[in-house]
């Protein structure tokens, strides 16, 4: 017999598969062929003990797996972060926010100042340009001013008069448009009050309305010479229905 079976003794190392494979029993005697009974019994006993220990351990482990599994499914998967961690992240975030806000503020200041400077420069340039134009006009007036009386009356007066006429015509055109629109809107709202809703399809289209305005303009302008804008105003209102809230052109 090898030392294996007895060697295990009560070492408590546990029975391994290798141990079992290496077991060699001694021959008993010539009279009793086979292994020594007591040795075989001892090994079997140990094997049985070992097996039952494994079975128990396995059951215990299975139980443990089950509880862990249920914890995993039931409880939140994540451990909630600690207060300290939350505080640290919060203050880091705030620091970052402040840097970004500061950068934006700086950018705002710089672009704001640049814009103000730009606008000021444009304003100055315009004023300069205006002054230059005015000076040029004055110079031109001085040059043409001392011209003989005859042409001056035609030329000088006609420039001023033309300007006045243009201004008047502009105002007049605007007034016509406004009044026509007021008239049409008044008609429309009348129609609406009567019928509920205006039908755009039935409206006079804008082009004829404009043409009407233009026609009136043209008529007036032929008789304009002797009139000023303010003289003309009262006449314009004649064509407007009393109910409309027309305003004179400004």
């Amino acid at each position: 017999m090898t030392s294996a079976p007895s060697g295990h003794g009560d070492g408590g190392r546990g029975l391994t598969p290798a141990d079992l494979q290496q077991v060699r029993f001694s021959r008993a005697s010539m009279l009793h062929p086979g292994y020594v009974e007591s040795e075989v019994d001892r090994v079997l006993h140990r094997a049985a003990e070992e097996l039952s220990r494994h079975v128990a351990e396995k059951a215990q482990l299975r139980e443990q797996v089950r509880t862990l599994q249920s914890q995993l499914n039931g409880a939140p998967a994540h451990v909630p972060p600690s207060e300290q961690a939350v505080r640290i992240l919060a203050s880091a975030q705030q620091t970052a926010d402040n840097y970004v806000a500061e950068a934006e503020k700086f950018s705002r200041q710089v672009t704001g100042e640049a814009r103000a400077e730009y606008e000021e420069a444009v304003r100055l340039a315009r004023e300069n340009a205006g002054a230059i134009i005015q000076a040029a006009q004055e110079a031109a007036a001085r040059l043409t001013g001392p011209a003989p009386d005859g042409p001056a009356q035609g030329g000088g007066r006609s420039v001023a008069e033309l300007e006045e006429q243009v201004a008047y015509l502009k105002a007049f055109g605007q007034a016509c448009r406004v009044q026509l629109r007021s008239y049409l809107e008044a008609l429309l709202s009348d129609v609406e009050n009567e019928w509920g809703q205006a039908d755009p399809g039935a409206l006079p289209t804008p082009p004829p309305a404009r043409r009407a305005a233009a026609d009136t303009d043209a008529d007036r302008s032929t008789t304009f010479d002797s009139n000023t804008a303010s003289d003309q105003r009262p006449e314009q209102n004649e064509g407007v229905p009393a109910g409309s809230s027309a305003r004179p052109a400004s």
Partner: peptide, 20 residues
């Protein structure tokens, strides 16, 4: 937000740098 980012870091990248 700090709590959310710590427990689910993958959500952080849905937000801009500055959270103000």
């Amino acid at each position: 937000y700090s709590h959310l980012f710590l427990s689910h870091p993958e959500t952080r990248e849905m937000f801009p740098v500055s959270m103000a």
